[in-house]
Design a binder for these strands. Sequence first.
DNA 1: TGCCCAACCAAGCAATTGCTTGGTACTGTA
DNA 2: TACAGTACCAAGCAATTGCTTGGTTGGGCA
Lengths: 202, 202
Amino acid sequence: MTTESPSQANGATGRRRELLAIAAELFADKGFKNTTVRDIADAAGILSGSLYHHFDSKESMVDEILSSFQAELFAAYDEVLRSDDDARTKIERAVRLSFEAIDRHRHEVAIFQNEADFLGQQERFAYLAERNAQSRDVWITLLEDGLRSGALRADLDVELTYRFIRDTVWVAVRWYRPGGKLTHTDVADQYLTILLDGIAHA
Amino acid sequence: MTTESPSQANGATGRRRELLAIAAELFADKGFKNTTVRDIADAAGILSGSLYHHFDSKESMVDEILSSFQAELFAAYDEVLRSDDDARTKIERAVRLSFEAIDRHRHEVAIFQNEADFLGQQERFAYLAERNAQSRDVWITLLEDGLRSGALRADLDVELTYRFIRDTVWVAVRWYRPGGKLTHTDVADQYLTILLDGIAHA
DNA sequence: TGCCCAACCAAGCAATTGCTTGGTACTGTA
DNA sequence: TACAGTACCAAGCAATTGCTTGGTTGGGCA
């Protein structure tokens, strides 16, 4: 069915990685559906048909991009969850970790942000919805721990707070640029200041 | 050029409004590029070619949807700016006004959120970038007034604070559902609490 | 009764889309 | 030197796309 040899079916080839990186940038900039296989091939300096030597389909490209990124991201979340830091520190770490992910994998984050809803309708991408639920579990756990320990104010709506944090953190991928004036740490510092203590004068 | 009679060229026809509402829902759900004229026509119960009796092109549909919404939204911003409320009240009003816009025009907001970057590249949609700059001006003004008056803490990065607020408010369109358990006022209340005073226990 | 006109249909065209097929150039290995 | 395997090209197909064209329907008005 596939033209890959067994030894390379895991995508370890250098050329595969290159092509996936090129595709990821285009998917992030123009959207998955709005990026053609000819766009990708042009950017790679080959003909569109040649892409099918490396990949089964355009879908399998975005699949590989998203699933490998998600695996890495959730490994990081798990480490925070399992640490013995106090509740507030865990929340801080989870926020910093997310901005760092934007810094290191902006294309992947952007694709997930823009295409998850649409792709998630297909069975092949059902794991996207699962990962979303998993992410929610992480945050709800962290926030409820914060409430219990007294680190967070008691009148918070945990579900809404989770949504606000998630939205603000991940949508930053739209404007954050690695190598720009602000580092991901700068952004995380400022956001944590506002999130924890508010913008109003004390 | 167009098949419209002079008396209906402004889009006041009932049928035009219906078709635009149908198109707006589809554009919001599936994306502009990913919605075909046949999708729109099917949802309206007509054939795709019949759409061109009402509109010049698919682009002119999304143009009409976005430009009329933007006009309404910025009229509301202007009213807040020109009021003689204090800085903190103005910020609160601007936030509430935005959640209310999501409640009343979710399709339009969603389209603007998802397609502005892509559409804005075309000259026809240059006004989207202008509106964006205009919105930034409004918020930067409000925040700087807040700093000057002492309502806001002095160590804020105004530009970053603006981005956090803008992102959190508008991305709520992804999960807020009119008629659901939470009203737009509930959401605004909770967000303003967090934004102004933070989530940490005092 | 005759006419107008908004609203729509039926059919199809040209461009673009994802993908397929059969073949070629080059490289490393036995 | 023969062979295997990677990476690619050249050409094109079937489906889908936005949009066009010429014609039909039915209600309102003089």
